[in-house]
Write a protein that binds this DNA or RNA. Structure first.
Lengths: 212, 212
DNA sequence: GTCTATACATCGATAGAC
DNA sequence: GTCTATCGATGTATAGAC
């Protein structure tokens, strides 16, 4: 029992260090990219020695990979919020407005999400498996949630729910990329409400015209 | 006259080296990113010594900046093709299909364009002025060309041409990013024609319904 | 397990010969 | 203008004490 406690204690201490290293790695990698991040800075940020970083994660590629996988799992919860039933029980025009607004605000206010997208794109050549993990665990569930909603609203007469979901997600992601990450705010200002309203108008237009 | 010829000849030789360096820089930077590219590899790729690279471009940041500006100017012509008059003189549904198809194929088949987008996003933090140059010289003209077409087709009854243009460009760019750069082809297969047709259907739906 | 100290390679940038 | 040779800094990774 004492032996078991000792083991648990040791394992817990080690886990605490691992967590600290992952947090330091996240901060450094997301801020500077893979190549420009040094293991010295990660170690200093985590409050451990460089040798400890290597004993926990083997090498730089492994640490980067673990940190991204960890972050992708974290952000998965954000996507699942899109399927809250109470969010989906209003007029379709309002539901789509709310969905789009929720996606937009989550990405816009969450610097980690933007930096994750940035580094996934940057390193998709060097780490193709991480790009696939991102698509499989974040992009795909988000798109599928929207497809599922479109399918549930047959009176919207959406001919191709899969392609329409891509239109919606693509519009929103590109908007944030251009405005926030590429400084489009200054060069090409455009209020987010206009994009959201245009999206929901286009998608629900059959529904509206049958009402009027 | 002989002196003038000598000057021109010398200037031409120097320009040839500059061009070779820029081409080497393009190959290396686009393939490996800014931080992971070494000046030694650029010099070897260009067939000159490293000192020559520095005498022409000062330092690494300067070389990178010059190479990106050069590439952005190159790709500008691609955008201008969108305004060919003969492309815009058919039924709106067909015109939008053609525009979308042209944008998509240009990005899809042109690896340089994808790599340029990738590195602009990657280095937008370190080189904000390059991101702004990209938006100003490529994204903005493309979006404006589409806005201009929408405005010219008043019978389409497009309420917000600016926002609708963003929907169109965002959908196409995100599609290529997800399918090509992030290996979505394998995880989330979707034919490009479905996306293009969905886009043109959504945008011209008012026009169609008034016809039927 | 965690540390300090260090090996070894490679980086950006420059000096000096031609 | 272009080269070879090299400097100093910094990178990844590890050896060895505790």
């Amino acid at each position: 029992m004492a032996k078991s406690n000792y083991k648990i204690s040791a394992s817990t201490k080690s886990e605490a260090k691992s967590t600290a290293i992952l947090e330091g790695a996240m901060k450094e990698f997301l801020a500077h990219g893979y190549a420009a991040t040094s293991m010295d800075r990660v170690a200093k940020e985590a409050g451990v020695s460089k040798a400890t970083v290597y004993s926990h994660f083997g090498d730089k590629e492994n640490l980067f990979s673990a940190m991204i996988q960890n972050l992708v799992q974290d952000k998965f919860q954000m996507i699942m919020d899109l399927q809250q039933p109470e969010l989906l029980e209003q007029d379709p025009k309002i539901v789509i407005n709310n969905l789009a607004s929720k996606i937009l605000k989550n990405v816009q206010k969450n610097q980690d999400v933007q930096n994750l997208m940035r580094i996934i794109i940057s390193e998709s050549g060097r780490f193709p498996e991480l790009a696939k993990a991102y698509v499989h665990n974040l992009a795909k569930p988000a798109i599928n949630a929207i497809i599922q909603y479109f399918r549930s609203q047959s009176h919207l007469q959406i001919e191709d729910p899969e392609a329409t979901a891509r239109v919606m997600v693509g519009t929103l992601v590109y908007y944030v990329m251009l405005q926030e990450m590429l400084y489009g705010k200054d060069v090409l200002p455009l209020e987010s409400d206009r994009v959201i309203n245009t999206l929901s108008d286009l998608i629900t237009r059959n529904h509206n015209s049958s009402q009027l």
